[in-house]
Amino acid sequence: MPHPLVPVPTPETRPYWEGLAEHRLDLPRCRRCEQVFFPPTAICPHCASNQIGWVTASGEATLYSYVIHHRPLKLWRTEGPRSVALVQLAEGPMLVSSVVNCPQTPDALQLDMPLRATFEPFDELTVLCFEPVGAADGEGSGA
């Protein structure tokens, strides 16, 4: 039995998780109304079509809002602080994530700042995080 805070993919979400494992952000897109949506589910939340395809997203996003978690997060192997954010994807959906590879401070985390997707190890999985555009490539998580 995995820890309840370790994500367990389902048939509907597996393409998303497989994309992350290959450092790609794949999102579900309705074949009927062509809207990209999140999270992945069996039907489109905009038009109720059950014809769902997948697209690889740009990874571009902006920082809508966030908190800075100040307590230890065992599974993230950090004593904190660590941001948890609402991130607005260029393709439309809003999702919960973290902004990494920058100081975890209000000064460094400015609302509306441009972000790009980054792929972080978490337990046995690869999960989606974001980093400021301009953050140095190839550095470990700053969070």
């Binding site: 309840p4 994500p7 367990v8 389902t10 307590r71 919960v96 994530s97 973290s98």
Partner: peptide, 11 residues
């Protein structure tokens, strides 16, 4: 479990 809780440790 898949999309929200793990980022903030369930707090």
């Amino acid at each position: 479990n898949q999309f929200d809780q793990f980022y903030g440790g369930g707090t």
